[in-house]
Design a protein around this nucleic acid. Structure first.
Lengths: 339, 339
DNA sequence: CTGTTAGCGCCTTCAG
DNA sequence: CTGAAGGCGCTAACAG
């Protein structure tokens, strides 16, 4: 391996001079810079990142934590999309992503511990937010820089997070349904301990309330991404005395299953029942019917969380703890419109 | 920060002894081990990975490279699924994933250069295989350990890769169509420079040939994952004088678009046209109609590539360069069966 | 503008 | 069974 010393020897300069050339230090003459660089090219020198990291006490890499991968929801394109956003910003700042890959909660926790305690990352981005997450507690206790994509379940004023206004999003999309004459509106949510589910449901309820529509308990269902879960949700709806004429689904991925199930029972979207959901992933546009869904700008969520964590790791001031990415509704074909 | 020296000072042992305790060296008495460990607990000591990596000249970190993220196909759940597989094996071996995040080919290349030349990773896993990939050339030239998920476009005997037998898979699924009485079978493939597309198409052609069916050029179409691409493919098919009665689609994700398009034109799957594809992602089961598709065991692909790269990085012998993950057909509802 | 010196935190001979 | 010393490759004062 060719090191800084080799370059020093060959050029006759000292190692520190070579180091300064790497850093493009202004106190080095152009002439020596050129000489040194020539030698580096010739010998094929490249700085060893590990060595550098050791002395500067920073790795310029960020641990990015996905939900534990036993979770079916991992197949949600949401994650690759945030990752894209994070990556794009990281690239220009020369930061790297260390991806957590734990199967279970336990494994995930161990990995985070390794990264953090081993000083292998400068910060953490959490790609989800759920109730009573021990990871959050750990990070807070260690006082380790982290940002969360989504809304924290507690300590909202302490935790830096990048989120949509999911309550408002839920309200907006539900109101849209109401404006189009729907009144018996059901809510199908994903895992009930996900903060995002809770918020969207809250918005749904607000919209109903505002429109003077009674909130019926039986109209609210929580399901998993699995097929059987979707089936159960639909059967529950269809078993109701007064069947809903519209349904708010908390995630596009779930919508796909719900629509299929509905179809299996001979119920058509949007003719027989309207459906709206959230995220606007690639699928929502290409399935039949194309989904009317809240575009939450996943990519931006990624970019902003990347910006935030890098700011925190480079001791810059963060103007605010709560960064909201605006949403808008992608109007498509899954809602029966008022004439 | 608490270091090995602090522990040494507190316990009265030397740093080297403490180091040996960390490594659980057998030449250290149980008694000292206990004392040292107690001190480590008390002071909250954790080994600094960067420092360790520097001396052992290895990071136990593998760069995992996705296609450049401008690529729409990144929303393909395929990637998170391989990642899951890789992660599961990495976890038990205490390896980490450094995820590449380049937008463009250029950016991706830069990142890989950084990782490799900076000795920031011990090896690379490539999650795709395309024709004339400069990344592969680079890795080969540097003689850097890497494994590819998919089949290399050249140097097949040199490059360690984990793949399905996609030619056979293509043949199997096409034969299934033929067995069910279909004769005018079209092929819709993704990007034409992806080796996987090429292989599956080859299998499709073999099946036709074997059944004595003429291969019609107009029946083969390449498209992108984008909506417009799917539309174009379908329109091309429908414009044909002799419309196909079945279609082999090279990826489940594309199938979703194709089915929607077909439906838009009033053509039903499988009543009017049968459809089969590949991958068996989560979606394939929950959309309507549920897809008959080749299950390629994505997760296993990930696990095996992880095994392979770790073997290479730890100087173990690899029994073979080409590791094939068996596939099987998931029979579902997108094919009209022979009575 | 450049060189000398120290040291980041850890592992590993080599001694004892 | 344990300690001392050196070094992994690089940066950062401090001199000059």
């Amino acid at each position: 391996m060719v090191t800084i010393k080799d370059i020093a020897k060959v050029t006759g300069f000292s190692p520190s001079t070579v180091s300064r050339v790497i850093a493009n230090n202004s106190r080095i003459s152009e002439e020596t810079k050129n000489k040194v660089r020539a030698a580096m090219d010739e010998l094929g020198y490249h700085p060893n990142l590990t060595a550098r990291n050791l002395v500067i006490q920073s790795t310029k890499t960020i641990g990015v934590i996905m939900p534990s991968s036993a979770d079916e929801s991992l197949q949600n394109p949401f994650f690759t999309e945030v990752l894209r956003g994070i990556g794009s910003y990281f690239h220009q700042k020369q930061f790297s992503i260390l991806l957590s890959s734990g199967q279970t909660e336990q494994e995930k926790f161990e990995e985070i511990e390794r990264m953090v305690l081993g000083k292998y990352v400068d910060g953490i981005i959490l790609l989800y937010s759920r109730l009573n997450d021990s990871v959050v507690d750990f990070l807070q206790e260690k006082n380790f820089p982290f940002v969360m994509v989504g809304k924290p379940s507690g300590d909202k004023d302490e935790i830096v997070h990048v989120d949509n206004d999911n309550v408002k999003a839920g309200k907006d999309i539900t109101t849209y349904l109401i404006e189009n004459g729907h009144r018996r509106i059901s809510f199908i949510g994903g895992a009930a301990d996900l903060v995002v589910t809770i918020d969207r449901q809250k918005g749904y309820e607000m919209a109903l309330k505002e429109a003077g529509i009674l909130i019926t308990k039986e109209y609210t269902i929580h399901t998993e991404f699995l097929k059987s879960g979707g089936r159960q949700a639909v059967e529950q709806i269809l078993g109701l005395e007064l069947k809903p004429d519209a349904v708010v689904v908390s995630d596009d991925l779930i919508s796909v299953g719900v629509i299929s199930m509905l179809e299996e029972y001979g119920i058509k979207v949007p003719e027989d029942i309207s459906l709206v959901s959230f995220n606007n992933i690639y699928f929502s546009e290409i399935i039949k019917p194309a989904l009317t869904t809240v575009d939450i700008q996943i990519y931006e969520l990624g970019v902003e969380s990347a910006k935030a964590i890098i700011q925190m790791c480079t001791n810059q001031k963060l103007s605010k703890k709560r960064i909201i990415i605006p949403h808008h509704i992608a109007y498509r074909d899954s809602v029966r419109l008022k004439k």
